[in-house]
């Protein structure tokens, strides 16, 4: 057993974006709230809090999961990646770059969830069909930008990935972006 009932706080040790954290948590604390409030990693957004919107998607041991559908105490001994681990303002992740280049975000609330869902998808897909892309986006809701440009961003990121060109040079440029 990992604890006694008396204190009802559990020590956990986990890795987030490569950094080890040790905390004590109440069992009912959702992983999403732990990331935001305890670790101050507020890039993980909380939309519906019941597993529908996908805004809180993170990587758990490399797999995309919803952080509002896990308790923080369950992340003990696991490795987590959040949007903060993807890139920096100076050096964006290729997906973030593709989102920027295709105007795939407007208010940006849903974006971290989309990005984290797409990281494993891109690792497995070089040249996905539109249907595959739309299925991959199915677990994330956007309520303002619309999905068309997000689909476009995935296509662009894949194209650049195929060309080993993460910086938007050459053929990877958005059609119509430069005349």
């Amino acid at each position: 057993m990992s604890t006694t009932a008396a204190s009802n706080r559990h020590p956990i040790r986990l890795t987030v974006n490569g950094e080890v954290h040790e905390r004590e948590v109440e069992p009912r604390l959702l992983l999403s709230d732990f990331l935001r409030h305890d670790l101050r990693l507020t890039g993980t957004h909380v939309g519906c809090e019941h597993g529908v919107c996908g805004a809180c998607t993170i990587l758990l041991d490399g797999a995309a999961v919803r952080s509002c559908l896990m308790f923080a105490v369950q992340s003990h001994d696991h490795e987590i990646e959040t949007v903060e681990g993807l890139g920096t303002a100076e050096a964006l992740h290729p997906l973030q770059e593709a989102f920027r280049d295709t105007h795939a975000l407007q208010c940006g609330f849903c974006t971290p969830g989309f990005l984290m869902s797409l990281v494993p998808f891109l690792a497995e897909h070089d040249d996905p069909s539109e249907e595959e892309i739309r299925h991959a986006l199915g677990g994330n809701l956007c309520r303002c930008t619309g999905y068309q440009n997000i689909v476009e961003a995935v296509r662009l990121a894949c194209r650049r990935q195929r060309q080993g060109d993460a910086h938007g040079l050459g053929e990877g440029a958005v059609p119509g972006e430069m005349s």
């Binding site: 990992s2 009912r28 308790f71």
Partner: peptide
């Protein structure tokens, strides 16, 4: 939208469960 408090056990064997 937060769960009510509960006591948490993380057993390692079926017998413990």
């Amino acid at each position: 939208m937060k769960p009510a408090p509960f006591v948490y056990f993380a057993p390692q064997t079926v017998d413990e469960v």
